[in-house]
């Protein structure tokens, strides 16, 4: 079967592969030009660049909210342009997204928001309950299960958004300015959370323009400028500074890292 062969071949290219990708909104100018890169499994990248450089547009391509105007995008080895509309949802379930404005459903409780990605898959309510409570406990929101998102602080809402993004154990995790609304200490904690997920095998891309954070974390950086992409290696020491160590310790004490257990539960 040629299709299978193609899938196998593409799987070697990693989680994401872009080839001469261009994107424009309607008939406007191209906001992304000639992007060619690939992201391997369990890689971790920051996506940086000035405002309006196209970071959000690139993320939209990655979470399948838009299709490219030209070029080839493969996600988990599948050419996104040829995926029938019917099969899109299954592919989207492999991608977790923390939106810049969270996009929580304000009429639903925290619990229901996080449960949503599992509910749409038709999982049994008992199983859903167990996983959601475990994850919300893990992100420190066990006491807010029934709260509406609007009654929470920005940082808490962000954690709900993150919990929703990771509850179904996506293979690709995208975050758009996840540190935008929170102070540095919380930002560091969130990044450690992403690192933890990355260690479990999730490919992570974080869009940010917080350069200090990027350099402190020492992860490869993709820099978008005027629609074109440049790759940078690790620009600062990957090892922790005193500052981030403190945050890390705090993060771990606050959120007992039982995620491996959660992962086991979800995959079983």
């Amino acid at each position: 079967m040629p299709v299978k062969q193609q899938t196998k071949q593409n799987a070697a290219d990693g989680v994401v592969r872009f080839e001469n990708v261009g994107m424009r909104y309607g008939t406007g100018p191209e906001v992304l030009r000639d992007l060619s890169f690939s992201l391997g499994p369990a890689s971790f990248h920051f996506l940086t660049g000035p405002s309006g450089a196209g970071k959000s547009s690139l993320l939209k391509l990655l979470y399948l909210a838009r299709l490219p105007s030209r070029g080839l995008i493969t996600l988990f080895g599948r050419d996104v342009a040829t995926i029938p509309r019917r099969d899109m949802p299954e592919l989207r379930r492999e991608v977790g997204v923390v939106f810049q404005d969270f996009r929580l459903l304000n009429h639903l409780s925290v619990f229901d928001n996080v449960a949503l990605p599992l509910r749409i898959t038709g999982l049994r309510e008992g199983t859903i309950r167990k996983h959601v409570i475990e994850l919300l406990t893990w992100v420190g929101l066990a006491d807010n299960l029934d709260a509406r998102p609007t009654t929470l602080s920005g940082g808490q809402q962000q954690r709900v958004a993150i919990a929703r993004a990771v509850i179904s154990r996506p293979r690709l995790l995208l975050a758009d300015e996840p540190t935008g609304n929170v102070d540095d200490a919380i930002a560091m904690r969130l990044l450690y959370l992403f690192e933890e997920l990355n260690r479990l095998g999730t490919t992570v891309v974080i869009a940010t323009h917080n350069d200090a954070l990027v350099s402190r974390f020492g992860r490869p950086r993709m820099e978008l400028e005027a629609g074109s992409l440049k790759f940078h290696g690790v620009t600062a020491a990957a090892s922790s500074t005193a500052d981030s160590d403190g945050s890390k310790a705090e993060a771990q004490s606050k959120w007992p890292l039982t995620l491996p257990k959660l992962a086991d539960n979800l995959s079983s």
Binding site: Y63, P89, R92, I120, T121, S168
Partner: peptide, 9 residues
């Protein structure tokens, strides 16, 4: 749109 993006049919 959110439902779609998290993979709802």
């Amino acid at each position: 749109e959110v439902l779609h993006l998290i993979g709802a049919h």
